[in-house]
């Protein structure tokens, strides 16, 4: 079993790095072989170029755009995990760029001649979202959590409608309070270790 972790954070030395380590540890404990895609370390180009846009519907887009290694990893993933902070209710632009550029026709879905779209990542059984909340007082926390679910749900066009999303969501307290953080990390690790 293979798990692919897509990690996004400009400075992974603090809480974000711990979230990544916990995710990798949890998925390994579940018996997965874990591959990590670190978008900031790879200096991933997040903006879709005009040339890519023009060749979007053609099947060789994945090779032309220099995202071949990513599509090879995605092609054998059973579990797809995303570790990122929520910024303004959404994923960081870097991660959004990964969606725009790496999840293209031929990799994430197939376009039929009649315009119908069929999923290309049906082998992904679970989508995991590990994310940390925005600063306190910004929003009701429950709806922020729903947005993390929405983020996973938007992937179903690629994975098929039956893939479920597991959300491990750290509230604002977890990032600042040591005790809460340790409890959250061990709970996350246990939840991921139980992922079959």
């Amino acid at each position: 079993m293979t798990a692919v972790v897509v990690f996004t954070h400009p400075k992974p030395d603090q809480f974000a790095g711990e979230l990544l380590d916990t995710t990798v540890a949890g998925l390994s404990a579940a018996g997965h072989e874990v591959d990590v895609i670190d978008l900031y370390r790879d200096n991933f180009e997040a903006a879709m170029s005009p040339a890519e846009w023009r060749s979007y519907a053609t099947t060789d887009a994945a090779d032309a755009a220099g995202i071949g290694p990513y599509s090879q990893l995605l092609a054998r993933a059973d579990v797809l995990a995303f570790v990122f902070p929520m910024w303004w209710s959404g994923p960081p632009s870097m991660l959004k760029g990964f969606f725009d550029r790496a999840l293209v026709p031929g990799v994430a879905f197939r376009l039929a001649d009649n315009g119908r779209v069929s999923p290309g990542l049906r082998h992904v059984r679970r989508v995991v979202v590990v994310t940390a909340a925005e600063p306190p007082g910004h929003f009701p926390q429950r709806s922020t959590r729903q947005l993390a679910h929405a983020f996973g749900r938007s992937l179903r066009r690629a994975t098929g409608w039956r893939t479920r999303t597991l959300v491990c969501w750290a509230g604002p307290g977890e990032a600042t309070n040591d005790d809460k953080r340790r409890r959250f990390l061990s709970r996350t690790r246990d939840r991921l270790a139980g992922l079959r």
Binding site: W88, P92, S93, K96, F99, D100, A150, S154
Partner: peptide, 25 residues
Amino acid sequence: WWSGQPAVLKAWIDRVLANDVAWSL
């Protein structure tokens, strides 16, 4: 795209709506 803004526009929101421009603590 993928139920969100293109990455470049999300980057505008992430970068330009900064401290003491769009919000303060």
